[in-house]
Nucleic acid binder design. Structure first.
Length: 483
RNA sequence: GGCGGCGUAGCCAAGUGGUCAAGGCAGAGGUUUGCAAAACCUCCAUUCAUCGGUUCAACUCCGAUCGCCGCCUCCA
């Protein structure tokens, strides 16, 4: 099987053919750091990280870059409101960003370039565009001349003449063409600015991504990801700037765009005010549930945010984690290397092995088909049922347990890119807690031996109140946190 | 006005031109259990927005209609 990816540029699924054999370049549009990011913003952070981790697990050497936009109108306005510098605002929310993505189980990018650290590169690109006649300076501003770029509109499938320019926002009268966009903005009084050949000013929004992606990944690279709302104008403009300046045909080869998170049928956004921040949501739901909530839906489709959906995802995540914990508990400390030869004389083991092996193939195939995580999760739950059934039927020492360590390795493999199995013990010193609980369980065991059901039940009920669930089974009593 | 997307069971959500369609949540019954929990088994869409067309065969292809959403302005 080979990896197929839906490319916005062609509007079709395409086979993945890396540009460079040594590494795979992946650029994702990161946050503008003027506030905490909301749960809709979190979607690309999660999904593109999952895609990147899957690529890594398939053996690609991925170089993953996410920019931090640390200079723009919103940051400047916020700084004015609070009476602090733009840099203070940016630093504050960059720190918050790192805290939040870590809690969301998102692996850090390899590089997080900041716009303000790349003014020199940005000016370099603008200069070359001006030299080539692709951009024109006016009184302190520099605009990109859309009419000079034939391919303009290819990504978004828009024609410049069909755009309703000025319908909602007045067109800057300095522009030759309403679709032209600003590369360099003339400094206004009291705003942060940098010197340039066109006077003091600051970069426009789109140019930083061209500058930083090409600096870290080269003129042509494999993947460029972002939200669907960035297709136009942001990504269209990035292509125009980059290709006009370097003369290369391909800027990013595959363009990936995630769908939106809706709130009651409407896009969640800061401007509509219908948002909930990621950090607020993480107070209410475990990370695994939030990730599952996103991954149970294909990344290109819309998701409707709902409490019911999140609650369902929480129950689902718990089911998965419980099975994983069962595996862990059954596998001996000094596990034997699983050898498929050892199961040849057991029909039961052979069947189990083949069933898991076959589901494994289907799971990976689904992931390779444009990262179909909902189908992947479906296969994973087929496995969960197989494993639970297998365990329910009883597991003896030896090959019967060894095969479970093989299954656990499979699960670990999937979770290296999905990140939906809760393996944590909520930060509590689990060793000690477990020692205490073993004492309690022993005590209750003697009560049950005496058939003192009243006390035994009360002990269990009280523990449930305290947030700890006791579960009795033929092989003994186990405990877990109540969610 | 232009462009793009979506409409599958109570809810969420995959999928295929040809055994009347994965998985999850919720629900019903059962097995197991001292009870509980977990787990397992069974049931839960003759139907895939509507109407036409192509085809031996469509939910899957084409057209139209209705409904919803997004982009064309900052936006993940």
């Amino acid at each position: 099987m080979s990896l197929k990816i839906f490319n916005t540029l062609s509007g079709k699924k395409e086979k993945f053919v890396p540009i460079n054999p040594d590494y795979t370049g992946f650029y994702v549009c990161g946050p503008t750091v003027y506030d905490y990011f909301h749960i809709g913003n979190a979607r690309p952070f999660i999904i593109f990280d999952v895609i990147r981790r899957f690529l890594i697990s398939r053996g690609y050497n991925v170089r993953y870059v996410m920019n931090l936009t640390d200079i723009d109108d919103k940051i400047i306005n916020r700084a004015k409101d609070e009476g602090v510098t733009s840099k203070e605002i940016a630093d504050r929310y960059i720190n918050a960003f790192f805290e939040d993505i870590q809690k969301l189980g998102v692996r850090p990018a390899d590089v997080y370039p900041r716009a303000t650290d790349h003014i020199e590169e940005i000016i370099g690109i603008i200069s070359s565009l001006v030299e080539k006649g692709a951009a024109y300076p006016t009184a302190g501003d520099v605009f990109y001349d859309v009419s000079q770029f034939e391919e303009y509109g290819r990504l978004s499938k828009k024609k410049v003449e069909d755009l309703q320019a000025g319908k909602r926002v007045a067109v800057d009268e300095l522009k030759k063409n309403p679709a032209d966009f600003v590369l360099w903005k003339k400094a206004k009084q009291g705003e942060p600015s940098w010197p340039s050949p066109w006077g003091n000013g600051r970069p426009g929004w789109h140019i930083e991504c061209s500058a930083m992606s090409m600096k870290f990944l080269g003129q042509s690279f494999d993947f460029h990801g972002g939200g669907q709302d960035l297709i136009f104008p942001h990504h269209e403009n990035e292509i125009a700037q980059s290709c006009a300046s370097t003369g290369c045909d391909v800027f990013a080869k595959y363009w990936l765009h995630n769908g939106f998170l809706d709130m009651k049928g409407e896009k969640m956004s800061k401007s509509l005010g219908n948002f909930i921040t990621a950090r607020e949501l993480m107070e209410l739901y475990p990370t695994a549930a939030i990730r599952l909530f996103f991954l149970q839906k294909h990344y290109r489709g819309p998701i409707d945010f709902s409490e019911e959906g999140l609650n369902a995802a929480r129950t689902t995540a718990e089911r998965l984690s419980l099975t994983y914990k069962k595996l862990m508990d059954l596998i001996p400390e000094n596990r034997e290397e699983f050898n498929a030869e050892n199961i040849k004389n057991s029909k039961r083991l052979e069947e189990f092995y083949e069933r898991i092996e076959s589901l494994d193939g289907e799971l990976i195939a689904s992931m390779e088909d444009d990262f179909n995580t909902p189908a992947v999760i479906g296969k994973l739950f087929d496995m969960v049922r197989e494993v639970n059934k297998y365990i329910d039927d009883g597991v003896a020492d030896g090959p019967e347990k060894d095969i479970l360590s093989w299954v656990q390795m499979k699960f670990d493999g999937y979770d290296r890119f999905l990140g939906i199995i809760d393996k944590t013990r909520d930060g509590i010193d689990f060793e000690r807690m477990d020692n205490v609980m073993q004492t309690v369980i022993k005590l209750r065991h003697s009560l049950r031996k005496e058939k003192n059901w009243v006390l035994a039940d009360q002990l269990r009920d009280d523990l449930t109140e305290a947030g700890i669930l006791l579960e009795d089974s033929a092989s003994g009593t186990t405990w877990r946190w109540r969610k």
